[in-house]
Amino acid sequence: MMDQSPQMPPAQMPLALKLGMILTVLMAVMALISIVWTPYAVDQLNIQARLQPPFQAAHWLGTDHFGRDLLSMVMMGAQVSIAVAMVAVGIGMAVGVPLGLTAAALQGTRFDDVIMRGNDLAFAFPALVIAILITAILGPSAFNAIIAIGIFNIPVFARVARGGALTQWQLDYILAARVAGKSKTRISIEHILPNISTVLIVQGSIQFSLGILAEAGLSYVGLGAQPPIPSWGRMLAESQTMISFAPHLAIIPGVAIIITVLGLNLMGDGLRDWLDPKLTHRSRQNHRHMTERGEG
């Protein structure tokens, strides 16, 4: 008989996972170090040393038009980006997963209908639109960016959790648990949640990378973190007028974003292949569908 063992992932990690982890760890370490130390203070102006090109001993990545050290700003930017995206994923999971699990447990009832309809509708509000609404009321801030991206994540996780849970509910072991007299709540927590955790982790890494992109977009248009907190998006916005004579100001934060997002995406794809080789192409596609929903 064919033996499938969902418990033990294969010993060999996929290349994508390794590569993704290296890139992600690199950015995470940079963000962590920036909490206690950066080469220069990010608000330290030095007009003499302004617009230095990259790759020099004093300023590895050069300086901007106020003479601020670009490496320090990129490091602080990583901290802000990662923090915003991480909290936003946390909000999405904390609200979305219980909603999805409940909807699946009550499949076919009015509650499930309302949740699903609400979900469909929520997809009509991209993170950018939510951010516009919130900012119009509360004014721009990193906090509002977190809320906007977080709200946007809720329906994504609700849908993924519900989809995964529905598949589990079809399986006989759930029926066996019901015959054993367990309540639906208990089954959802004890049996279903652990068995959809792989999908949730993978979706989490994808939403994380989308959060990074969204945060960059929001701060680029001025709806994210406000000065003096550095952010990759605003660094790009400020570089725009100087792009013809100081292109490194535009290129470096962009590369930082790309490395982070690429690392998280590779890690997500790799994790999925590694943890769950049984996942069919169709379900892979579904992850990708979700991927697509986050940008902007």
Binding site: Q4, S5, P6, Q7, L171, D172, Y173, L175, A176, A177, H191, P194, N195
Partner: peptide, 10 residues
């Protein structure tokens, strides 16, 4: 019927 699906693998 299904000897694979009737137990929680975890």
């Amino acid at each position: 019927q299904d000897p694979f699906g009737s137990f929680n693998p975890r």
